[in-house]
Every structure is written in structure tokens, then in C-alpha cells.
């Protein structure tokens, strides 16, 4: 197990592995996103109260779910980077941040667009929405902090601490609608007991959540590959790779 773990610390190994994963994951992701959107937007019934406007759920919920899960990926990479001082973990942590920020932003914007016709307001400072805004700032904070340091080892250390401290926000976001009185309704998908969303609407939603996880993975790997090449540009294996491809 430890040998596999240490292999992840090797840039050429990780570069090749991610390349072979992306070769099949990337087309699957594109097909799944298109198929899930068509299923959710065209082949499900309208909601009995909200009509067609509820269909934004097929973007809103997957983006929000993966934005939260992505934070844990970033924090775990941060912990690995702090404990084992592994460069590939630094790269993974840094690569998560802009993707997570983009997903959080999508969740906030679609939520706002959904809120206007249903609740009657674009924005309200309730616990769920405010904690989600804090998540966006945490992601952007990691990007800004990382770029603020000239020394990348120091940058990784500072970002790892920030992302670990920020993990407290994730259960707060998740439970905010149960702990406090909020305008946002409680979760419809429940891990225990029955979900309060009709199965005909739930399956395309779960499908879209999986598609967004795949999208996150693709974006993370692509980001990491770019950063690996950038950092290792003077090494023999990258030069060999460039010679293979470009031949200059």
C-alpha cells in the first residue's frame, strides 16, 4: 500500500496515469453531462408547485454537492502535503481551488436565478446561502494565498492550514437548513429514509451528480497535468515528451 502511495509522489508516473484515465473519462463525462441535461430538462414531468422552474435543480444541486465534496479533496490533499511534504499533494490542493470556486459560483448563481421566481428574491442572508458564499471566499482565498508566496513550499504550507481550518464550514453548510431557521428548504435527497423527491425526478438528478463528479475529476487531472509540466519543464522526461510531440 505504501509503495502505491509513494508512486503518487512521482510526477512522470502521475502524468502518465492521469493521461490514460483522461483518455476514457473525458468522453464519458461529456456524454453523461449532455445525456443527464436532456433527461432532466426534457424527459421529466414538471413539478406540481413550481412547474418548469424547478428544472434548474439539475445544475444547482450537482454543482453544490461537488463544490462541498471538492473541498474535502482539497483539505485531504492539504493534510497529505503538511504531513508527508509531497509535492504532488501541493499540486492537487492548488488544482482543486479554482474548480471548487467555479462550482460554488455556479451553485450561487443558479440558486439566485431559482430564488427569484420561487421565493421572490435574488438573495437573502440566510444560513445556507451565507455559508456557501464563505465557501467561495475560502476557495478564492486558497488561490490568492498560494499565489502570494514566491516560495511554493511555504505557499503549500499556508494553503494547507487554511483549507484544513475551512473544513469546519462544510458540515455547517450541509446542516445549516436543519440547525437554523432559513429560507432555503431542507435537503430532498436523504441518505437514510425516503427522499422527498419523486423517483422519476431523482434518478436524473443522481445521474447529473455523478456526471459533475466526473467533470470535477477531469478538471482536476487536467489542471494537475498542466502544473506538473510547468514545474518539471527542465527535467529529462518532460523534454523527451516535448521532443516526442513537437520535435523542435
Amino acid at each position: 500500500m505504501w509503495t502505491l502511495f509513494h508512486k503518487f509522489g512521482s510526477p512522470p508516473w502521475l502524468y502518465r496515469l492521469s493521461g490514460s484515465i483522461l483518455r476514457w473519462l473525458l468522453p464519458i463525462t461529456v456524454v453523461a453531462l449532455v445525456a443527464g441535461s436532456v433527461w432532466g430538462l426534457l424527459f421529466t414531468a414538471p413539478d406540481f408547485r413550481q412547474g418548469n422552474s424547478y428544472r434548474i435543480i439539475y445544475i444547482h444541486v450537482p454543482a453544490a454537492v461537488v463544490a462541498l465534496a471538492g473541498y474535502y479533496v482539497m483539505a485531504i490533499a492539504g493534510a497529505v502535503s503538511l504531513i508527508w511534504r509531497m509535492k504532488m499533494a501541493d499540486i492537487a490542493m492548488r488544482a482543486c481551488a479554482p474548480i471548487g470556486a467555479a462550482l460554488t459560483f455556479i451553485a450561487l448563481v443558479t440558486g439566485s436565478i431559482w430564488g427569484k421566481p420561487t421565493w421572490g428574491t435574488w438573495w437573502v442572508w440566510d444560513a445556507r446561502i451565507t455559508s456557501m458564499l464563505i465557501l467561495l471566499f475560502l476557495y478564492l482565498g486558497v488561490v490568492a494565498l498560494y499565489e502570494a508566496y514566491e516560495n511554493k513550499a511555504l505557499a503549500a504550507k499556508a494553503c494547507a492550514v487554511l483549507s484544513l481550518v475551512g473544513t469546519v464550514n462544510i458540515p455547517i453548510i450541509y446542516k445549516s437548513v436543519d440547525w437554523w431557521y432559513s429560507l432555503h428548504q431542507p435537503a430532498s435527497i436523504k441518505f437514510t429514509g425516503g427522499s422527498t423527491i419523486d423517483p422519476s425526478m431523482l434518478y436524473p438528478l443522481l445521474f447529473m451528480i455523478l456526471a459533475f463528479y466526473a467533470l470535477f475529476t477531469c478538471a482536476l487531472l487536467l489542471n494537475m497535468r498542466a502544473e506538473i509540466l510547468q514545474r518539471e519543464q527542465r527535467t529529462a522526461w518532460v523534454r523527451a515528451l516535448a521532443g516526442e510531440r513537437g520535435g523542435n
Binding site: A45, T118, W119, T196, I197, D198
Partner: peptide, 18 residues
């Protein structure tokens, strides 16, 4: 001065609701 609607977490097609 402002009234907002708070909807619940139930989603279903109109036929199911009926």
C-alpha cells in the same frame, strides 16, 4: 415590507400530487 415564499423539499409530478 417584503414577503417571501418558502417552499418545502417535496418535488413530484402533478399527477403524483393529485
Amino acid at each position: 415590507s417584503e414577503v417571501l415564499a418558502k417552499h418545502d423539499e417535496n418535488y413530484m409530478p402533478p399527477e403524483v400530487a393529485e
